[in-house]
Each structure stands twice: as structure tokens, then as C-alpha cells.
Design a protein around this nucleic acid. Sequence first.
DNA 1: TATCTATTATATGGATACAGATAAAATCAA
DNA 2: TTGATTTTATCTGTATCCATATAATAGATA
Lengths: 213, 213
Amino acid sequence: MNRVADRLIETLKQEIHTGVLKPGDQLEEATLAQRFAVSRTPVREAVRSLVDSGLLETRSRKGAFVRALSAKELIDLFEVAAELEGLACRLASERLTEQSRELIVLGMETCADAAEREDVTAYASANLQFHRAIHRATGNAWLIEQLAEIETRVNPYRSMPYSIRGRLPQSAKEHADILQAISNGDGTDAARLMRDHMMLQGKRVPLLLQHIE
Amino acid sequence: MNRVADRLIETLKQEIHTGVLKPGDQLEEATLAQRFAVSRTPVREAVRSLVDSGLLETRSRKGAFVRALSAKELIDLFEVAAELEGLACRLASERLTEQSRELIVLGMETCADAAEREDVTAYASANLQFHRAIHRATGNAWLIEQLAEIETRVNPYRSMPYSIRGRLPQSAKEHADILQAISNGDGTDAARLMRDHMMLQGKRVPLLLQHIE
DNA sequence: TATCTATTATATGGATACAGATAAAATCAA
DNA sequence: TTGATTTTATCTGTATCCATATAATAGATA
């Protein structure tokens, strides 16, 4: 549809997501236009769009900057994320199909595997896979979208500090419990377990912030 | 900051919100530009932004259209809304200040008043006031933002069918119960009451859709 | 030497111009 | 008369140009 601008959005999102662009980094329209060999028009649309979605912020006549979330904002985000992840678990356990269950199981096993090997990078990716499988199992498109957006926002702060490594097996164990509850169709339990699981992450917000800079 | 485009976004949002623009209505860039006596550039930014936020959709080379939500999408939205409204109640009851409590009380009383007079329009507005007061009482900016967005999306479908009029006193009563629970600091109860309250609305989605066309 | 003011340079916001793609309409053929 | 193909008109997407606002720097004065 909007080829160039959409491509730019996707690329910039990726770069923010993967940490090529860090919170606080400056993005100037003219520079971006040069870099991607396009005019300023699609660049402007892309920047505008990313500002709307909260990934960038503009300072008057100084350009766009990758938005740095404050501790308060991160905590707010985690609070909502925990609730929505809980809802996802409840809905997933009510609407579980054989197919979606298999995907969640796969995610869980990949997590357990990475945890055993203490492979932090692999665990981070497998963790995403596990959570996303649950999201999809809800069949609620809006919920899936919201959780994806939260994911995008929080991810730049997710480079795991060493202190978390020791918690990997514990975290994997929690995943197994959650999966168990979902499989049993026990939505209330699944939601509660997931909320607790998420809130433990939320507790580490100061640590995450410390690590980014 | 971005004066013209921002003004356009605000105006168009209002018109969608108030029903001047109905789901399915077409918006053409050139026409909008003429109407607001500006060039296409800010119009494009505005349209783009509204497409991003889901209020409009573009059909290839046919322009932008006010997005019509399907029943499925509305139900999905209500499911998430109910959960987040519940979370808001829980957080509000944990963090209630005298000031925020007064605002909620005010909203509740305005609702009760409108319900007694069977004034549907006044009730709709008071209902918003009540809910927003609770949102604000959470002190969670992200949550407030999300609930506002859901509000924007659902509102065009909110023109109340007659069948709801009879439920006004019942609805006002539920508000009173929710306020009571929040005031007592009973977060779990408040959340549950609110979820039930919202889900009753969700049950009426087919009715709402029927009414729009 | 420090602060305030003025000027200059630069970056964003808006207007206009242009090209490409698609949908609709018209014409021709079966 | 209907269907298909071609042509035309229009709408979107991109580039460039211009104006304005702001920030930075330099100079002057206290």
C-alpha cells in the first residue's frame, strides 16, 4: 500500500526493537532521507507514525528522539501487561484447541531447554514464543494487538542483566505451571499464575533501567 | 507543535465520535483539503494518523473510509475493556485519594440523577464521567490512555437503543455498588463488579450493531 | 568576564508539482 | 445486448520548494 513509508516504519521499529537505536538517540529527517535514499516526505510520515505510536518523541525543532521511558511509565506498562497477559491465559484456557495447545507446549519446551543450557539469548526469544502462542490462542485480535504493542515498547529495556540468569529455571517452571492450568481449563488459576509471573518482572524495573544506560 | 495536522485530527476524531461521520463514510484527501482550506500535506498526515489508530481504513485508490467494526471486533474490544475497567477499579481502590473519590462520587450521582429522569443523553455523558473518574484515580497513565482509545473506538456504536432505557436505574445501581467497593478498599470485589457491569454491555453488541445501520 | 541581545543558520511544517497505478467508463466485437 | 478490452480520468504516493520558528553563536555592553 504505502510502500516506502511503511518500509521505513518497519525498519525503524526493528532497529529500535533490536537496540540498534537506543532510547535517547536522535533521528533527523534529512539524514534518514539520505540514508534510505528517499525524499523527506515518506520519512516524515514514518517519523510521525512512530511518534503517534509512542516509540519516538519530538523536541521542538530538534528532531525526533527514540523515546526513553521513565521508571514510572515502565511500571504502569507492566501493570497493564500483567493484567492483559492474565486475561489472555483465561481466554486461552476457555478456547484452547489442540493446535494452539501444541504451539504453547512448544514454546514452553523451548524455554525449558534454553533455561537448562542457561542460554539467555535463546531464553529471551523462547519466552516471546511462549507468550505469543498464548496470545494467539485467545482468538481476540484486539488483545493480541495490544499485547504486541506493549511488547514493542518494553522490549528495548529487556536486555537481561546477569542477575536474572539465576531465575531462568524458576521462570521456566512457572511457564510449565501456567500451561498446566490452561490445559486443565482452569482459567482463573491460569490468569492468577500469569499475573504473578509478570509482576515478578515488573519488580525488576529499576534493574532494567539501570542496565540500559 | 504540528498545528494544522493536529487540528485536523482533533476535528475528524470529534466528527467520528459524535456521529457526524458514520462508519462507512468516505473521506477524500482533496475534498478535505478544500474543506479546511489547507494543502494535502497536513490532510495526509491526519488521515494517516487516523488510519494508524484504527478509526479509518484505506481501500486501494478509493480513499479513506470511517472504519466499521464487525460484531467480532466489538466483542473483542468489550472483552479487553471489561478487564481493563476491572483493573482500573482495583488500582483505584488501592490508591484512592479524597479528591479522586469525590470526582467518582460526583459521576455516580450525576448518573443516578439522569437515570431517575430517564434522560438517555445525559446518562450517556454522566456514564463517561463516572468511568473516567475511576480511570484517573488509578494514576496509571498508560491504562488511562488505553481506556480512552477503546472509548473512542466503541463510542460511534453507542447511540442507545430504546431497549436500554429500562436498564438505566439498574446500571446506576451497579455504579453505586462499584463505588462502595472502591471506597471500602475492596479491590477484588470492585474489579469483579465492574467486569460484570461491562460484560452486560458486551452482551448487547448485536443490538448496538443493529441500531447503527 | 559574564550576561543579554541580535543575527544567522538550520530543521521542521506546509504548499505545490509530478508520476504512477487503478478504477470506471466507453467503445467495439461477438 | 452483453462482455471484454482499451482508454481516460482521478486519486494516491513521492519529490521539491518555500516560509517560519527556534536554537546556537557571536558580539556588545555592563
